[in-house]
Simulated scan of single mutants.
Amino acid sequence: MSFEEAVTIALCALATILTRAVPFLVFSGRKPTPPYVRYLGDALPAAIFAMLVVYCLKDVAWLAAPYGLPELLGMAATAALHLWLRQFLLSIAGGTGFYMLLVQFVFK
């Protein structure tokens, strides 16, 4: 491993540790969390999921076969799994797996 690679890995590790530790240092348990930070904690997860859905569907050819059917079925499977199990990771993994099976074996 070269010196540049070692420095790059060390800087990436340091940046990751800092992004994890800074919120705990800035917002300690001694004083209440500011309202805008609580608002961001409530609003951002839904906004990020909405952005991911738009990003994933932006290149779908809705007017050509298979007309976005694998994507719609994958989203339906993800939603159904989440309504049934209430587990984000299982819902996402199950929906993704179902979508991959569709595009690999059904909608070739």
Rank of each mutant, 00 (worst) to 15 (best):
F3T: 13
F3A: 11
A6V: 07
A6C: 05
T8K: 03
T8Y: 01
I9K: 09
A10F: 04
A13K: 02
A15L: 08
T16C: 10
L18P: 03
R20G: 12
P23H: 02
F24I: 11
L25K: 00
F27V: 09
F27I: 04
F27R: 04
S28A: 04
S28I: 02
G29F: 04
T33K: 11
P34T: 04
Y39R: 12
L40G: 07
D42M: 15
D42K: 10
D42W: 08
D42F: 13
D42V: 08
L44Q: 11
L44W: 13
L44K: 09
P45I: 09
P45V: 05
P45L: 11
P45T: 08
A46V: 15
A47L: 14
A47D: 14
A47F: 07
A47V: 10
V54I: 15
Y55W: 14
C56R: 14
L57W: 09
K58E: 15
D59M: 12
W62V: 11
L63T: 14
L63D: 08
A64N: 14
Y67M: 08
Y67R: 08
G68P: 06
P70R: 02
L72V: 12
A76P: 06
H82Y: 14
L83F: 14
L83M: 15
L83E: 12
L85F: 05
R86N: 13
R86V: 10
Q87L: 05
L89K: 08
L90N: 01
L90S: 00
I92L: 14
A93M: 10
G94R: 00
G95E: 01
T96N: 07
G97D: 03
M100V: 05
L101Y: 02
L102K: 00
V103D: 02
Q104I: 03
V106M: 04
V106A: 08
K108R: 11
K108I: 12
